[in-house]
């Protein structure tokens, strides 16, 4: 995303700030794993990992619920292309969503199973550190494949076919957690991961979301 040209940033493309924050967090967690030493404990690492997973799972579920729903509606309304392509797109998105979702959840479970076994132990050994690092690496790669697919295909397709207001409504679903006591926890987290320019853009977006009916 071009951070230096705010006038070129469409509403929906700001979802990439969430991607950027997820990538930054994943990199920080894998670096922590690479830096674990024999004799270390997992307490700090566990907190960092859990924080990443909370956001990732929320984002996966919101994407599954709203992103594909939004796209399917667009394809239906606009009759975007010929019937065959429309059908292929829907099959692809459904399959893609399911396979990516399952792949990431499986990898999250794998890491948690290592953490749950090891968390009570007083100190780590090389073998555990390696298994943990590999688990985190696999999850980071699965996340990257997923985010890249959204950026390269789903989001451009939606962008091409929806109005800025519709895009804002969609972003509201993705960035505001209506079920939480603190509905803006995602936005706050994203802002915490960005550089000053990105922070300003997301704060501006937050204001627009606030006045959205």
């Amino acid at each position: 995303m071009k951070n230096n040209a705010s006038e070129n940033i469409t509403e929906l493309s700001q979802i990439n700030f969430v991607h950027e924050a997820l990538r930054t967090t994943a990199s920080a967690v894998i670096n922590r794993a690479y830096n674990l030493q024999n004799g270390d404990t997992l307490q700090g690492f566990n907190l960092a990992f859990t924080s990443w997973i909370t956001i990732l799972v929320f984002y996966l579920e919101a994407s599954e619920k709203y992103l594909e729903q939004h796209l399917k509606q667009l394809l239906f309304e606009r009759n975007y292309a010929d019937k065959n392509t429309n059908n292929a797109l829907i099959i692809w998105f459904t399959g893609l969503s399911k396979s990516n979702h399952d792949r990431q959840l499986k990898r999250i479970e794998d890491v948690f199973s290592i953490l749950h076994i090891e968390i009570g132990k007083t100190s780590l050994i090389t073998r555990t550190i390696q298994h943990l690092t590999l688990g985190i690496l696999r999850l980071k790669i699965a996340q990257e494949d997923y985010l890249e697919t959204q950026e390269e295909s789903l989001i451009p397709l939606i962008l091409k076919n929806s109005t800025p207001i519709k895009q804002l409504h969609f972003l509201k679903h993705m960035l505001i957690d209506q079920e939480s006591e603190d509905p803006k926890w995602i936005i706050k987290w994203v802002i915490g991961q960005l550089d000053p320019h990105g922070k300003k853009l997301v704060l501006d977006l937050e204001k627009r979301l606030d006045i959205l009916i």
Binding site: N87, I91, W92, T94, G95, L96, K98, S99, D102
Partner: peptide, 14 residues
């Protein structure tokens, strides 16, 4: 990659 995606979609019409 495309084939895996189709299989994961579990759709009857494909």
């Amino acid at each position: 990659y495309a084939q895996k995606t189709i299989l994961a979609s579990n759709r009857s019409e494909h």
